[in-house]
Structure formats: C-alpha cells, structure tokens
Design a protein around this nucleic acid. Sequence first.
DNA 1: ATCCCGCAAATAATCGATTATTAATGCTAT
DNA 2: ATAGCATTAATAATCGATTATTTGCGGGAT
Lengths: 220, 220
Amino acid sequence: MLSEQVYAHLRDAIMRGDYAPGDALKPQDLAKEQGVSLAVVREALVRVVGEGLADRLPNRGFAVPAFSDRRWQEIAEARRTIEPVVLRMSIERGDVDWEARVRAAHHRLARTPAYAPEQGAYYSGAWSEAHRVFHRTLLEGCGNPVLLETFDRMWTASELARRWSAYRAPDRDHVGEHRRLEEAALARDAGTAAGVLARHLTLTAAGLAGCTDHEPAQEA
Amino acid sequence: MLSEQVYAHLRDAIMRGDYAPGDALKPQDLAKEQGVSLAVVREALVRVVGEGLADRLPNRGFAVPAFSDRRWQEIAEARRTIEPVVLRMSIERGDVDWEARVRAAHHRLARTPAYAPEQGAYYSGAWSEAHRVFHRTLLEGCGNPVLLETFDRMWTASELARRWSAYRAPDRDHVGEHRRLEEAALARDAGTAAGVLARHLTLTAAGLAGCTDHEPAQEA
DNA sequence: ATCCCGCAAATAATCGATTATTAATGCTAT
DNA sequence: ATAGCATTAATAATCGATTATTTGCGGGAT
C-alpha cells in the first residue's frame, strides 16, 4: 500500500528531525518528491496527525508541531505517573522469557554507541531504537497490550520533544541508570525498579527543562 | 470541513451501535448515503481507525472491530491500573473550581435516568455522556492534558466494548458507587477514592466478563 | 465427487483535475 | 502616510474517473 510507505517515510522524517517545528507539510511538495498523488499524501498526513506527530490547522494545512516547554513537562509527568506502575506489574508477572528479553535488550543498549560521529550532537538512530526497545521490554512483562500502546504513544511524543531540545544534561549517567533498572527488574525488586525508573524519567525531564520554545520556522 | 462532519457521524454511529461488530464499512455506500466523495469518507475512516474505533485490513477495507472478551479485560485492567493513580494526583492538586465541577457533574449524573424507555436494554445517550463527564471531571484536577488524553482513549475503547456486551450486572449499585467516589474526592481522601474507583472498575469488568465473542456479522 | 484453475464481479486504492478558501500584494481614499 | 479594500496567486479541500486487488463462482481435470 502506497500510503503506508509514505506514512512511514513521513513519520521517520519528522522523528529524525528533517523538518523544523512549525514547518508546513505541504501535500503538493510531498506528493511530487514521493512520486505519488495528493490522496495518498493526505491519508498519510491524517494518520500522522492522529499520532500526534503533526498538527492540522483547518483550511490551513498540516505542520510539524511546535512543542512548548510546558507540553514537554506534561508528557514527562505522564510518563512518571504511569510507567512505574506498569513496571511494577511487569516485574510481578514477567516470566522467564521476559527476563531473557530484558537481558538481551539491555545488552544491545549497552553495546550501542549513543553518539554517531557524523550525526553531530544527536543520539544515533541505532541507540535511540535500542533505548526504546529496552524501556518497552521492561514493561512488556505486564502482558497488557493496551498499557503497552499507551507507552508507545507517550514514548513517541517524548522522543519528538527530545529531538528538538537544545540542551542535554552533560553529566548524565545513562549507563548506570539502565544497569540499575535491569538489575532491579531481574531481581524482582519492584519497589526499587519503580523508584529508579521514576528518577530516570525525572532526570530526563530536568535535562530538557528550560529549553526555550522554538519559533515557528520557515520552509525546510 | 466535510471530512470532519463525516468523521463525527461515523464515530457516533459506531459508538451508538448502528453497526454490528465485524461489519464492513464500505466507502462507496457511506459516500452515497452521506452525499460526499470517496476521498472524504476515506479520510474520516482513517481517523476512525487511528482512534481504535475501526479496523483496517490491507486491501480489504475497513470494518467495525470485533471486540473479544480478552480484549475487553485488557482494557478494563488498563483502566484499573492507570485511573486510580491519576485520581490520587487529581485529588492532591484539584482547586476549588475543580471541586465545584465535580459536584456539578455528579449532580447531573445522579439526576439523569440511566435507561431511556425507547432505547431498550441500553443506557441512554444522555446518561452515558453524563457518566463520562463525571469520571473525566474527577481526573481533571490532575491538570495534565496528556493523562486526560490517555483517559479519553481508554474510555472510548471501554464504551465500545460495553455497547456490545450481552450481559449487565443486575444488582449493580451505580448510584452508591458514584456517590462514594464524589464524597471521597471532595473530602480529599485520595486513598479511599482510589480504592473506590478501582473497585468500581473491577465490578464493571466483572459485569461484562463472560459475554462470548461476537461472530463477524453480515451487512448492516 | 472433489480439487484446482481461471474468469468475472465487486470494491479498494490511486490518480488528475476542479472548486473553494486563504494570505499577500498593490491600489485607492482619507 | 496610513488604513482599508479589491485583486491575485497559492494551496487546501473535494470530486469523478481509472487502475489494481481480492473474492466468489463455474468449468474442467483427476
């Protein structure tokens, strides 16, 4: 299905930061550069909007969302509120297969370099994906697809905001935080794990706090 | 915008139960009966799918989702997991305006008859809406739009499943449960309120448990 | 009698063009 | 000189028709 490809491409482009926040997503331009008709671009855009990766202004088209600092803090707070509870459930219910997958995901994350030389200041695509998989795997023991869908939505919003944050906590010990998370989870220490995760999310939020809103930008 | 109207109509129709679970949503039929072109119907359908109110089968069109008993239990569990936590936050943070809105929402719910004579066994539309507003208002004190969006999504899924449940708990004391919720919330007793809400959701889940899956149905 | 293959009808997906709305530009009147 | 209005260019929204895919039916071979 063509619209699926266009949707995937659009989603990746936005998440990768190819467009600046506030940039207009013009159906005609996208159609030409993708070699498809307006209809499929439009369908892809509607899906992207539904996922929160773009805004729609009635009769004024589509645009990359301009995340405010306030919005970012709300997303971070929502994650702090929900994810530790789900992690508790996951640790109580996860089976041996889950344990194995947690180990595997942590191993991959630990062995993936966070920064690609050519990518400048941003995290590498491989690390971002490994990071996502590790956090998701931690929660997958809960066995509830609805809760995991909720995680997916919040993670997407969170990553989009992170992509556009100007600052990064310089003294952040990602590796240690993730290792403590893995250890607590595999030790079935739900209380400690939930606490570590909450602190992890708080630190991430603090690292991004204070970055100013981005002004609506011009053409890509 | 035409697609907005068609979207709203489609959403209401599905939530109202105009289509049976599994029914195909044929763009051509919808276009003719709504007096619009395929494109706008298609856009509305894509949005509906994004909200979880319809399934999309590649190259096989759109259909009303056939909720399984398992799926329903997962939704109910997700609500039990998340909503009490948000309610705690809401009770800790809500201001006087929030208190007033809780009172108002409860009053409206208590004074709205649950069953409309002409609607048969189903809850009336007015009661369903008052019910939703009461539950949402309880959580709105948290002040976090992201958490409230999460509630909205789960509520929608929950109501859709409820619409198609064959059984209803006969001895259910809705009125008392809601009154206790309101009292605990306004007394700022977060622990009690969270407990009452968890029990409320458990009872709802139990009331719908055991209803068999609906077979994929034929034309509307 | 049953299974497989191919044909035909239905419908999903896509396209190119048309219509309507918006934003910008330049003109006019005060 | 500036404020307000008309014109125009750009683009969003919609439409009608075309193409591609799937599904059900019927004929023929085993």
